[in-house]
Design a binder for these strands. Structure first.
Lengths: 227, 227
DNA sequence: GACGAATTGGACAAGCCTGTCTAAATTTGT
DNA sequence: ACAAATTTAGACAGGCTTGTCCAATTCGTC
């Protein structure tokens, strides 16, 4: 019989599943307590395994930490690129499409578990492990920013935007869209769906105020008689 | 020493100076190593005092940490308000004045020692001490943001900007102006003067692209009589 | 059902850190 | 110069954590 239906206890897991459990629990504890304050016993308990299993899988605390950061980086990158794939290359309603994209990016990459944890680990331990986080910087921002800039450049090329430097525009887009969430992020909190939507709406509006083409390139925006 | 006889010179200079040394060293070590990883012996050595002196002045590690955060908050707030006082209320060249203001704010409040340390402590330990950082939130952002919003509202009232919500505009201004420094901030680094200037210039340009009055795009706005 | 591999729980040593204590040296105010 | 307060170095106990070892148990697979 399979005793895996009890919701309170851990169902039986494979070798690999336990490895993942340990990394997940370690991410949570490292974030909550900091590297020095993280306790292997607590990680083991939170993962539902014995302490010995943690050592069997990952060697020691430092190696476990590295595994956590690599894991989070990989998963976050996957989420970011998946979301970038949904960038509105051919928008029907530019403002609404960009807001929706910004909200997706927030929900799937920035505010979700992996995104919050990775950001906090980078902030807290970045200086302690220069080479590890230099690697993250190449793998993460180094690629995602240029991918995003390419999308904005395409929007501009198609006549939807009037952009000088696409890299600058991409960074400013995210700065604007998250402008009202900074303090929540700083304190490690999770913004509500309403806050995310409001910040994104305000941000996109300002972004388009600066970068939207004012001469009605495609014809649909001609309805908006501005000044 | 007779207590109460000389109310003007209560604390011997060296005594108070040592207290400050300890707080400064503690800020540095708490930031570098995290709260749990911070070692009182190291703090004492870095402050140039004995460990016992640390305990004499501040009681225990937790109290020392609280003293550090309060100290940094106070000093940062002073710097922020001093810089806000230099906000260009009557700009001669709006873009240049706003860029200069943004650069001042960065140099004096965000990138300096106190600003970097306070930000890192908030990010790293904010969740561990909710009441302490709730207090910071009231004392710091709660006041500085509304003061800044008031300055932008005045600029709008004077006809230099076309703003919907001044609070939103203030937050977006700083988001834009620091847009290109985010990763450096995240890793605890200090941007160069050139990076700060470039980010501020790009940010202000976009900000004005969204909020500058559109009536006279290329002319000198200072020529208009202020009503 | 049986066998090998993985897992568990607990004991264990070694090291580190906090916070206290003491006696000696130093500084401060008068 | 004197007396009180402060500072210092070092020792010290108590607690906690890491990483290892091991015997007993459970799991996966044939």
């Amino acid at each position: 019989m399979k005793p895996g239906v009890s919701p309170d206890t851990f169902p039986p897991r494979s070798h690999e599943a336990k490895r993942v459990s340990v990394v997940d629990a370690a991410a949570s504890v490292f974030c909550r307590e900091g590297y020095a304050g993280a306790n292997i016993d607590l990680i083991a308990a939170e993962a539902g395994v014995s302490r010995q299993t943690v050592y069997n899988h990952h060697g020691d605390k430092e190696k476990l930490f590295v595994a956590v950061v690599r894991d989070l980086t990989e998963r976050c990158n996957a989420g970011i690129f998946a979301t970038i794939a949904s960038f509105p290359d051919q928008p029907t309603n530019l403002e609404a499409d960009l807001v929706a994209f910004a909200v997706r990016m927030n929900r799937n990459c920035i505010c979700n578990r992996d995104g919050r944890f990775l950001r906090k680990l980078i902030q807290a331990e970045g200086e302690r492990c220069p080479e590890l986080f230099a690697e993250w910087r190449e793998q993460g921002p180094g690629r995602t920013w240029s991918a995003l800039a390419a999308r904005f450049a395409r929007l501009a090329f198609a006549g939807h935007l009037s952009i000088g430097d696409p890299d600058v525009a991409a960074r400013q887009f995210f700065a604007l869209v998250n402008a009202e969430l900074q303090i929540t992020f700083m304190l490690g909190g999770v913004p509500t769906e309403e806050e995310v939507l409001r910040s994104a709406t305000n941000g996109v509006r300002t972004f388009l105020g600066a970068f939207a083409r004012r001469k009605s390139p495609a014809g649909k925006q001609a309805a908006l008689a501005h000044a």
